[in-house]
Computed example of a mutant assay.
Amino acid sequence: MRGRAAIVGAGISGLTTAIGLRGIGWEVHVLERWPKINSQGTALGVRPDAQAALARLGLDEELRRRTVPYRRAQIRTPGGRRIADLPLERIERKGGAPVLMLSRISLMEMLLDAAGDASITTGTEITDPEALRGEYDLVVGADGLRSTVRTAYFGTAVRPRYTGIVAWRGVVGFEPDLRGETWGPGQVFGITPQEPGSTNWYAAVATPEGHRETLDELRARFTGWHDPIPRILAEVDEETVLRHEIHELSSHLRSFVTGNVALVGDAAHAMSPALGQGACQALLDAVALTDCLRTADEVETALRAYDARRRKPAQRLVTMSRHMARFSNHPLTGPRNALLRLLPA
């Protein structure tokens, strides 16, 4: 089956969906509200299932060229004592490949290159998605956490909710020996590879909604924590550090589809980044939607198959991410760390 698709949003889910649909012969128009496509961001971890999804689109070689493997890392106390290992080796055993790290900037460049001559229009804000339904055979809401498409067709009962956590992220120009996460009371600091010569860092800190903490205040939070955390924060550039209040969808949607409209990525299942699964799930959505449209005779039949394939697994990860965020940022560190030591590697 072939047709015309309007994709609202040119982030990871929107561009990947465009690549997939063009690959099966669809005419695709991507509509992005920002004046230019936003490639901002730091490191993302691509798990084996998401790597397989990119391979389905012919992007496996380019992915390997741009990434570095992430194989071993620990969870530590602020004093540097090891509590447990991150489950990277288990992920590799189960999936047959290590987690691969790359910057969001690099992934977006890769997707834009692969989109080729797809029609991408920026500076176009869709306020009435209904106007698209008559013009296109398929409308895809890939417009993120505050999705206009989701609100128009699925209502406001499911809406963004602040998790109580602010995420800080950045990159520094050296490679420390230590990688992983350090868990303190109400805050987590993470260090991962990104590319040769640079290191991705992130901090998740419990913060009242609306409170605008300064970078110096963030540094003060981590005073006395083990090396190289103070060194990383000392080298952070105020101009490049990213700070975001973390929101998730307040509850689960009953469906990702209605009629000829489908939701993908954060529009469907925005989640806490505690499990590092947001980008991976967006890639899986796009490829699943493509697969269902490839084999079905009607758009609505394909969308029902897509919903059956993706909704429950994605929503399960939303719930798991919520619990992990609360667990890792829990203020009672003693019981939390004791429980963590009992978990399988």
Rank of each mutant, 00 (worst) to 15 (best):
H247R: 13
T319F: 03
G259K: 03
I24W: 00
E238S: 12
A305T: 14
G334H: 04
T17F: 00
V8A: 02
E195N: 12
L31K: 01
I91W: 09
A142C: 05
C280A: 12
L242N: 02
Y70S: 09
N337P: 00
R221P: 11
A220N: 11
A203M: 09
H226G: 08
A270L: 03
T214D: 10
Y306G: 01
A167M: 15
P344T: 12
V261R: 00
L44P: 14
P185Y: 04
D227H: 10
G23C: 03
S328A: 14
E245Y: 08
D216V: 13
M320R: 12
V236S: 08
G184V: 03
L107W: 11
G278T: 02
M101N: 06
L178Q: 11
N337A: 02
E61G: 08
W183R: 07
D227N: 13
R311I: 06
E209F: 11
R221A: 10
S39G: 15
L100M: 15
H323G: 08
A142H: 00
R336F: 11
Y162D: 07
H29A: 10
L100I: 05
I165M: 06
Q40N: 14
D266V: 09
H226D: 09
I126C: 03
V140L: 00
T122G: 01
L340P: 04
A43K: 09
M320Y: 07
D60V: 07
R66L: 15
V30M: 04
R159E: 12
W26C: 04
R219N: 13
V241W: 10
A167K: 10
I126H: 01
L218M: 08
V171N: 06
A302I: 04
W26D: 02
G14E: 03
R304K: 11
L86I: 10
T156P: 03
Q187P: 01
S39I: 15
H323T: 06
G170Y: 12
A118I: 08
D237M: 05
